[in-house]
């Protein structure tokens, strides 16, 4: 039986390009990857890590639907939490940008998710990189 772990890394700004959206949709697509795998293969729950300017994707109160007519990245992050994807936000970058937990999407209780985002030191993200079989850097 093969088991593999994927890490999705996002360091791009929200809405400037579609990178962060694609990172989230690819991570969420891991929920249906089983249909393409052999019976004994298993993909571990993926991790998505926001680093650098990418932490701005995790800002609360996004109005993408009103402004651009598209689903917000906030909704995608909440869907990721709903599907038990581990969401990590780099602590050093949160502090560098003058943000705190209050500004960020820390949970998705409103849509029934148990999982919560975690603000962690970059060293923890580095550990996740070391534990992963593949890192998809968006």
């Amino acid at each position: 039986m093969a088991s593999k772990k994927f890490l999705f890394m996002v360091d791009k700004l929200p809405y400037k390009a579609e990178s962060s959206r694609l990172a989230l949709t690819h991570a969420i697509a891991s929920q249906t990857v089983d249909i393409h795998l052999d019976e004994d293969d298993e993909m571990e729950e993926p991790v998505i890590a926001f680093v650098g300017d990418g932490v701005l994707n995790c800002m609360k109160g996004q109005k993408a639907l009103e402004c651009y007519g598209v689903t917000s990245l906030e909704m995608h992050i909440k869907n990721a939490l709903l599907t038990d994807i581990k969401v990590l936000i780099c602590k050093e970058d949160v502090e560098r940008l003058g943000l705190s937990e209050d500004n960020l999407i820390m949970d998705a209780e409103d849509i029934g998710a148990d999982m919560q985002s975690e603000i962690v030191p970059f060293d923890d993200i580095l550990q996740q990189m070391e534990k992963s079989n593949h890192i998809l850097y968006f």
């Binding site: 994927f6 990857v33 850097y137």
Partner: peptide
């Protein structure tokens, strides 16, 4: 997208 993830799963090396 799940096709790509499965392709990565089965790959020895991934260049993303």
């Amino acid at each position: 997208m799940d096709w790509y993830l499965a392709s990565c799963f089965k790959a020895d090396r991934v260049i993303h």
